[in-house]
Design a protein around this nucleic acid. Structure first.
Lengths: 166, 166
DNA sequence: GCCCATTAGTGGACTTATGCAACTATTATT
DNA sequence: AATAATAGTTGCATAAGTCCACTAATGGGC
């Protein structure tokens, strides 16, 4: 490494990250920025770009007609006010409608529109493709492992405990 | 699962995530929000909390005296303007100083202050601890694997190619 | 039926982050 | 000497996230 001429080319090659080098949160946070930017580019102009939550919301509403905002909010880790603003925006774009839930007059029931469904169908392949491309240096085995482990953590964090809990 | 009484308790238990369930970027983005919030709490009041980059910057400057802003910017995935604002903030807080580089009068050389070093020493254990606690349901083997795979991707993204590249 | 705690959603204000583009100063190229 | 490239700064516009208070509706206990 010391004899590699390329090592002196990029100053970063030699730069240690201190304790961050072994800190998972660091990589999650850093890769988040990178992957989110890349995703925004892949979705450019599709009024589901920018920010977190629109994609998940669209797909959840498509797949679960009548789903309630608070349920989505929990899954995308937003508070109710942020969720409300998101829905307001998406409703303005004509992607979904908000009706009063028949079960509970406080709650809303969300339904996708034709335009929303079209968009959902359109972005599904883009999303999966983008993730695979971005993490292209990861093998299939590693990928499966990451999904399994991170998915487990996600479910725990979001309150969908796979383990014991009252 | 269908017979589990708990399944009906939390409405989310039954909710599928569509294609996101197998999409790595989704988990990275979601966990980022969760782990960042948790980290902010762990660092509350330590004027290195909130936002990305301050921690990395502090540790890099501590470990690499005279390092240049543009190098850090590349590693924390910020553009120069964002980096400048970050440094301005940290300088105001008395964590580091900015001097003109002796090599290149355009560039700056960053040095940590006594206060900065104290803070660095103080947060190092907090950061590693927080990450481990947050991902407490991950085994040591899984953790090593994640660090290895995500670290590789991080290095590629950041321009520190571990593979062939001109 | 009546109180009280809880939950769902809304709205406002505040702080931050992000992105882009223009600008100066310095260095490298040729 | 002229031109291009790089380092950093500044301003601005857009958007996100955070907090807190507020209304409306539900549910439980009495």
């Amino acid at each position: 490494m010391a004899s590699d001429p390329k090592a002196t080319r990029n100053p970063m090659t030699e730069i240690g990250l201190d304790v961050l080098e072994d800190t998972l949160s660091f990589y999650i946070r850093s890769l988040n920025m990178a992957v989110s930017r890349d995703l925004d580019q892949s979705l450019e102009g599709l009024d589901v770009a920018r920010g977190t939550g629109k994609i998940t919301t669209l797909l959840l509403v498509d797949r679960h007609p009548g789903i309630r905002p608070s349920v989505i909010a929990q899954m995308i880790l937003k508070d109710r006010s942020a969720m409300g603003r998101l829905l307001e925006q998406m409703e303005e774009h004509g992607l979904l409608t908000r009706e009063v839930s028949s079960d509970d007059n406080r709650a809303q029931a969300l339904y996708i529109t034709g335009k929303g469904r079209e968009l959902a169908d359109r972005i599904r392949p883009i999303i999966t493709r983008q993730s695979r491309d971005f993490f292209s240096d990861i093998t299939d085995e590693e990928h499966a492992m990451l999904i399994r482990v991170l998915g487990r953590t996600y479910r725990r964090v979001v309150g969908l405990e796979p383990n014991d809990e009252a």
